[in-house]
C-alpha cells in the first residue's frame, strides 16, 4: 500500500519525532560520546582526552561482571514466566466467570500501590524469622530459608518479587487485547464444540499475538533495566554482599554515586547493545509468528 502522498506520513509522526529527538535521542548521543571521555571536567563541560579506557575498565571490573551475570539470569527467568503467567491470568479473568471485575481490579492494584509499601510488605513476606513464606514452609517441616540474607538466595528472591511486580502491566495489556477479539469467533467455536485448549491455541493466541509480541519485547527491555525492584526489596542496597546487583544498579551507582560519567556511560552503551541484540532477535521471531 505505497501511498503516492508519501510525505504525508511524516506529518503524523513529526510531533513525536521532535520531542523524542530533543529529550531522548540528543541526551542519548551525549551519553554515547561520554563513554569515550577518559578525562572530563564536568563543571566546565570540557573533554581533555578521548579513548577506550572506560570500556576496558568496565570489562575488567568484577562488579560489572557480576551485574551482567545477575541481569542475564534475571532476564532468562523473569521474561518467559512473567509473560506466560500473566497471559494465563488474563485469559482466565476475561472468561465468563463470576467476580471477574473484582479480579481485574485487584490485579491492577500493584500498578498503583506505592513502591515503598510494596517493598516493605515483600521484605516482611520474605523475612527469615517472621515472614509469611518461611511460616508456611515450616508447616511442612522445611527449615527457614534466608531469602534476603544469603547471597545464594538473594537473586532468586529478586526474581520471584519481580515476576509478581510485572504481572499487573502485562495483564492490563492482555486484557486490552482480549477485549479486541471479536466474540463471534468464540461463539462459532462453541457451536462446533471445539475443546477449550484448542480454542486457546487456535483462536486466542493467534489473535492476541501482536500483544504477546509486544509484552515479550517490553518485558525483555524492562527486565534488562531492572533497578527499582532491587532498591525496594533490599532497602536501597544491592542485596547482601552485592549478590543482587544488576546492570542498571551498577550504572546509576557509577553515575550518581562515584560521578564516573565515562564508566557509567560505557556500561550503559554495553547494556544498550545487549538489549538491542535480543530485541532484534525477538522482532524477527515475532515477524514470523505475529498475525495482523
Amino acid at each position: 500500500m505505497i501511498n503516492k502522498n508519501s510525505w504525508k506520513g511524516y506529518f503524523y509522526i513529526l510531533p513525536a519525532l521532535i520531542v523524542v529527538s530533543v529529550f531522548t535521542i540528543y541526551p542519548l548521543l551525549r551519553a554515547f560520546l561520554m563513554s569515550f571521555y577518559t578525562k572530563y571536567h564536568f563543571a566546565s563541560d570540557t573533554v581533555l582526552a578521548y579513548g577506550l579506557d572506560n570500556y576496558t575498565y568496565v570489562f575488567r571490573d568484577d562488579v560489572f561482571q557480576k551485574a551482567l551475570r545477575n541481569t542475564s539470569l534475571f532476564v532468562l527467568f523473569v521474561v518467559p514466566i512473567s509473560v506466560g503467567l500473566s497471559l494465563i491470568l488474563a485469559v482466565l479473568m476475561n472468561s465468563k466467570i463470576r467476580f471477574r471485575s473484582f479480579y481485574q481490579t485487584v490485579y491492577f492494584l500493584p500498578y498503583v500501590t506505592s513502591i515503598v509499601a510494596v517493598g516493605i510488605v515483600w521484605s516482611w513476606i520474605f523475612h527469615s524469622r517472621y515472614g509469611l513464606i518461611n511460616y508456611v514452609l515450616s508447616l511442612f517441616g522445611i527449615p527457614a530459608v534466608q531469602w534476603l540474607n544469603s547471597p545464594k538466595t538473594a537473586l532468586i528472591t529478586l526474581i520471584i518479587f519481580s515476576i509478581w511486580k510485572s504481572l499487573a502491566f502485562n495483564i492490563i495489556i492482555f486484557l486490552a487485547g482480549l477485549q479486541n477479539i471479536n466474540p463471534q469467533y468464540y461463539d462459532a467455536a462453541r457451536v462446533d464444540g471445539t475443546p477449550k485448549w484448542r480454542v486457546f491455541t487456535r483462536i486466542t493466541i493467534p489473535l492476541l499475538s501482536p500483544m504477546i509480541a509486544y509484552a515479550f519485547v517490553m518485558e525483555l527491555i524492562n527486565s534488562f533495566k531492572v533497578y527499582t525492584e532491587v532498591f525496594a526489596l533490599f532497602g536501597g542496597k544491592p542485596g547482601p554482599a552485592n549478590s543482587a546487583i544488576t546492570l542498571v544498579y551498577y550504572i546509576y551507582n557509577k553515575f550518581y554515586g562515584s560521578w564516573n560519567f565515562g564508566v557509567a556511560s560505557a556500561a550503559a552503551v554495553i547494556l544498550f547493545v545487549i538489549i538491542l541484540f535480543f530485541t532484534l532477535i525477538q522482532l524477527q521471531i515475532s515477524k514470523r509468528n505475529v498475525h495482523f
Binding site: 521484605s123 520474605f126 523475612h127 534476603l148 533490599f234 532497602g235 536501597g236 547482601p240
Partner: peptide
C-alpha cells in the same frame, strides 16, 4: 549480627 534483611 548484620542488619541484613532488616536494613537498619
Amino acid at each position: 549480627r548484620l542488619a541484613g534483611e532488616d536494613v537498619y
